[in-house]
Amino acid sequence: MSGLHVDSVTKNFGLRQVLTDIFISCTKGEIIGLLGRNGSGKSTLLKIIFGSLNADNKFVKVNDKHLKGLYSNIDIIHYLPQDSFLPKHIKVEDIIKVFCKKQQAINLLELELVRPHLRKRSAELSGGEQRVIEVLIMIYSEAEYLLFDEPFNGLGPLHIEIIKDLIKAHSERKGFIITDHDYRNVLDISTGIILMHDGGTKVIKDKNDLVRWGYLPSSSLSNT
């Protein structure tokens, strides 16, 4: 079976069971929106899929390859964390050259969004500018599957639209799992929605389901 498949994930923090009944699959061409209330375990799940956080139990497979840790993920899965992660001591140009392969780096270095910042260190960029660079190096990387935790965090409306268009354009060659507190942005670009509820995942068909599972207030249906 092709694609990213995540199954049998369980995770406890002390006596609290955060993840218990997880199933997610994503193929290239899909943008899966992962929604859930604060504390529902979205970030925890993404970190477990990526391999930076240990689970009590997990099964992550891409195509026929069983992924067990970070080293086995190289060029397969990348994870964009909520907070800025760029090394502050090197220039944006060098970050791109280290992170992306040669041709992708050349393509990225020519982007209008990136060019003004090439000679700056990431510490000299605003939070929004850092976020744009972080999202772009992920999109232009070799990774087949991208896990985005709050990709629109700190971005202005113009940059949000640009990033959404880029994600849609690159989803032809990659699979995306995206979570963001601004659910409208996620709904805009998603080809499928998964809701985290009571430690498990629920497949969402439409906005009515989000109301039924208590993610959206019923008043949100009349606003559309």
């Binding site: 930076s52 970070l70 190289i74 994870y79 992660f85 970050i95 992170f99 990774a143």
Partner: peptide
């Protein structure tokens, strides 16, 4: 948080 840059490599 910078560890995530290297984790992705």
């Amino acid at each position: 948080k910078e560890y995530y840059f290297y984790y992705n490599l």
